[in-house]
Design a protein around this nucleic acid. Sequence first.
DNA 1: TATGAGCGG
Length: 370
Amino acid sequence: MNVAAKYRMASLYVGDLHSDVTEDLLFKKFSRVGPVLSIRICRDLVTRRSLGYAYVNFLQLADAQKALDTMNFDVVKGKAIRLMWSQRDAYLRKSGIGNVFIKNLDKSIDNKSLYECFSAFGKILSSKVMSDDRGSKGYAFVHFQSQSAADRAIEEMNGKFLKDCKVFVGRFKSRKDREAELRNKASEFTNVYIKNFGDDMDDERLREVFSTYGRILSVKVMTNSCGKSRGFGFVSFDSHEAARKAVEEMNGKEVNGQPIFVGRAQKKVERQAELKQMFEQLKKERIRGCQGAKLYIKNLDENIDDEKLRKEFSSFGSISRVKVMQEEGQSKGFGLICFSSSEDAARAMTVMNGRILGSKPLNIALAQGY
DNA sequence: TATGAGCGG
């Protein structure tokens, strides 16, 4: 074996580095276990910023092993470093073979105790307890060198108590796989959400309305503190087929003289995420709609509201948005108007700037910066 | 409740 090949075998990958960690600092640290041939922190070619990982090349293989055994997860500049053998072939890292996901992990279990616990099943390439400034986030990853070791760990550990928590241990799934899985699950829903049936409704009547579609496991009309219907509720069927049919046939049908909404019941977080996304989409569209055609109106008379402002400017062209800024119901004296075309906006500004509206002359400026 | 990041000279 030539010298270069021998050195290569004594190379460690050091990940999860704080960006302020220097070669010098790492050299001092790793020299404690044995002679270090070289250290390289990988950096952005242009900015020279640390990419958060480095190589430590020992002269002796045994020293590299010793560093791996004793220094993994040591905290440097406030962050736990993660040591692995340098492995240039990306296959094992990318394939996900042998990668295990752990959740419901007791908060007191740290990197070292996790590593210790799981190394009983085989050689570990990399492991990590996910954490933030408040400590463990209660889930972790252990990447074994072989799938058989991973399978043994899952078999042995899943459902076992570690400290005070019954852990889940299973195969790691990429974000993409996991999202696909969740979508699949959602598409086979059995729980149905119903709204807009008003306050004249109870569990029994709702059950009656939906019982024609299949066997019902539970019905719930949501009520306020006085026991009065809040106008929405849930019906859980024993089969997806029944739930699907209920949605298909009942959505938009009249109950209590008004059309009801019937759809797949979402979890609260799911619904919130959807609303947030819709809101952001709307915002994007609004910004796009205003591009190049947005006027800032200042020195507005306090009696001018959205509608009055729109009326005053409507003759110049199609307006996509009007907003008088308010605070506690009071006009703040300025606002904005978005025209569909920038020519209309420019014309409106030319004609209306300085025009007296109410008690004051308007001060109009073309919005900058989009 | 939770499904990462990652390989040079």
